[in-house]
Amino acid sequence: MATDSASPAGKPAGMRLPPGIYGVVGIVAAGAALWSLAPEAGSRGETLARLVEWAPALAHGFAMNVLISIGAIFIGTMIGLLAGALAMSKSFAGRLARLWIVAFRNAPWLVLIYFTTYVFPFGTTVPFPDWLKVMLGLALPASANIAEVFRGAVASIPSAQWEAAASLAFSRWQILLKIVVPQCVRRMLPPWMNVYAIITMGTALSSLVGIHDLLDTAQIASSTVARSSFTVLTYVATLVIFFAYCYPISWLTRTFEKRLRTA
């Protein structure tokens, strides 16, 4: 997850195409190759028609992925910023925050999703839908990562600023809120977007706990139509849809980073 630096030394000049073009071409070529190799009981055209028929259902499934990712990053950012700020203090709350960060950076995401889906008590009075549980399950590691991003951004502020502000009688919290954090926001943006991209990819795990996301819909489509060539098409389409959503985000991240560095 290292965010990219500027173009490396020794790279051939004139490489102006975004690297994603190679990726897209690669997937489409590989997908087409696989599809042509798949045994076809009916006609190729018919399989494509079935894919078009299932496209709205797949889009609906992907909307669920996006919903979960947005909710998870939102909740994760709230908790992460709080935890990151607390982790810098030496109080008991600070120790708890550091424990939180370490715990959720070292737990497998799949296990966390199983944990929030099965172990959280269900509210009988307040409806607690399943996608909300997956959202929470992903918000936990997101918060830990964002806390680390926050810590890194704060650490990049020269300590001279802290000392100068302290000499002007700002309290620690005032320095944090009024001087350091506003500068951090710009620096945190690329790694934060990176975390968002990773969370979005993590939402694919929700298919393992029964959420009707893109991957689950692809599996249902594949078993309803029950044809190898359609199965190949559907799984490749799933790959393409995730790539089409996540690659622009990571490309934007790199652009912001470059602009930050030159600014």
């Binding site: 990726g23 690669g26 799933t238 790539f243």
Partner: peptide, 27 residues
């Protein structure tokens, strides 16, 4: 170089689970 670049972009921007299914169930 282009192929490697493309490969890196694809694996970094798609979920591991989907890659695993594509490899194991399809390929």
């Amino acid at each position: 170089c282009g192929l490697a670049r493309g490969f890196i972009e694809v694996t970094r921007n798609t979920p591991t689970l989907v890659q695993l299914y594509c490899a194991f169930l399809v390929l």
